[in-house]
Amino acid sequence: MIDTTQAFFAQLAERGYEPLLHSVTGTIRWDIEDAGSWFVAVNNGSLTVSRDTVGADCALACSREDFDRMVVGKQNPTTLFMQGKMKITGNLGLAQMFQRLFPDESLFGTAQGKKERQ
């Protein structure tokens, strides 16, 4: 079985550049329960992914299950945060921009996404 969490970060590292983050610079730490921490450094859209501890501008923490749901576009990060299931400390603007790195729900079928919500 594919490890969704690992696969997401590996894919992010391969991506190298994300135009939607062209005006974003900062380091985001992800603390994922039962999976550990990842560090994503964004420099005007250029992405570097690492597991070595570095200083971060914001830290996001959630369960592995919720993270994996975001990774496949089935969970909206904003509402996960609003429900109290994802903790964010530090620069909220930066955390918000990270949403753009999660895939489009429509890629996985909107009907399915809608069903999940109900």
């Binding site: 918000q96 489009d104 429509s106 909107t110 996404g113």
Partner: peptide
């Protein structure tokens, strides 16, 4: 601009 739409989301 920060919250400009980036995807198709019917809901």
């Amino acid at each position: 601009a920060q919250r400009q739409g980036t995807r198709i989301d019917d809901f």
